[in-house]
Design a protein around this nucleic acid. Structure first.
Lengths: 199, 199
DNA sequence: CGTGTTCTTGACTGTTACGTCCAGAACACC
DNA sequence: GGTGTTCTGGACGTAACAGTCAAGAACACG
């Protein structure tokens, strides 16, 4: 009997996500979000609650999509080491550089809000732990496939790779030249992944 | 003949810096800054201009102090490689973990503002370029001193080290366990600095 | 000790912020 | 087609926001 929603919840989350992504949490006003989503006040508040709750919803959806994508790529990757390369080099993947300048919504939000909003810090830990697990799995596969030294601690390597990727994201956000960013990514990758001893 | 200032400009900049550091740029109100500095509105506006200009002043002072500290430590360090270690391990240097959770003002600000405020992105590039130059010098010294493989490209290594450090700062901000953070820092460092070939 | 310049304080303005609320619209079901 | 429930849009209230301004205080200098 209820009147059905006129909007698609997922589309609204994506539109709102872009607004937060472009301006940051605090600088994004509710009016910005209403304009971005095309909804009226009652609808947005009714469906998602206040700004803080809406933001957390956006962030969680963003992270989940990222993790889902990583897992899928791990399964479809010909070799485990490919995923690791993709993960790190992807920071400079967009040839226009727009994606690099935009950075990562989670990383941006953590830097802006981690102190004042424990929810965001917790979400970041959750996400980074999950990414580390996926990278660890990829590296273990790479070890079995002979692309990475089997003597290396896969979990430890995964964390180092994650740190390097986060650093690259930070550098990309400064507007660093894409070619330079790629060079840094390649050299970091080459050093972090210990090659198997040739025999 | 003019009436002298009653406040110390440098102390005000530091107090204001802490306020920005704790809350982020957008979430810090002028009232917060007035309370933190102890000044009245006319004084703060008269001495530093509006919020944006004040923030840039704070950021520039912060960066300059950082760079000065790095250069001094490079000169006083027994070995070039020591500075590189300090630089990376320093992220987890405070045993309480408060410093790690707080992160770096420049990194936080870049993540929050780089898109909307080109000044901040430019300041970040300036600072990171300067850090890279210092690290390059330290690495070249380390190569001469036999602590790093002389065949490695020092500038490229410096950029990789910077990326790793920025990643560690990002991880620290999530509240990651200090011991774990240190472990990641050590393993990244060990892999990024190619050991000299023993002979 | 008068004078001129700067500094300080806080009231004030206009804008924008977030969130609530209500009247009317739109639909599913009977 | 009536009825009940939810959705929609916008007006509204209160609070906080950034920044201006003017009146008076504090000093250096002559």
């Amino acid at each position: 009997m209820p009147r059905p929603r006129e909007f698609d919840e997922e589309r609204v989350v994506l539109a709102v996500r872009d607004a937060f992504w472009d301006r940051g949490y605090a600088a994004t006003s509710m009016d910005d979000l209403l304009r971005a989503s095309g909804l009226g006040k009652g609808s947005l508040y009714g469906a998602f609650g206040d700004k803080h709750r809406l933001f957390l919803r956006v962030l969680r959806d963003y992270d989940d999509a990222n993790l889902r994508g990583l897992r899928e790529r791990l399964e479809s990757a010909p070799r485990g080491v490919d995923l690791v390369h993709e993960f790190v080099l992807g920071v400079a993947g967009d040839p226009t550089g727009a994606a690099a300048r935009r950075g990562c919504l989670l990383a941006n939000s953590t830097a802006e809000l981690a102190t004042s909003t424990p929810d965001v810090a917790a979400e970041a830990r959750r996400s980074y732990d999950a990414i580390t697990a996926i990278l660890t799995e990829a590296l273990e596969r790479a070890q079995r496939e002979g692309d990475v030294d089997p003597g290396a601690d896969a979990a430890e390597t995964a964390r180092a790779v994650l740190a390097a990727q986060l650093g690259l994201v930070a550098l990309g956000r400064t507007g660093m030249d894409l070619a330079e960013l790629t060079t840094v990514a390649r050299s970091a990758l080459a050093r972090l992944l210990p090659a198997p001893v040739p025999r």
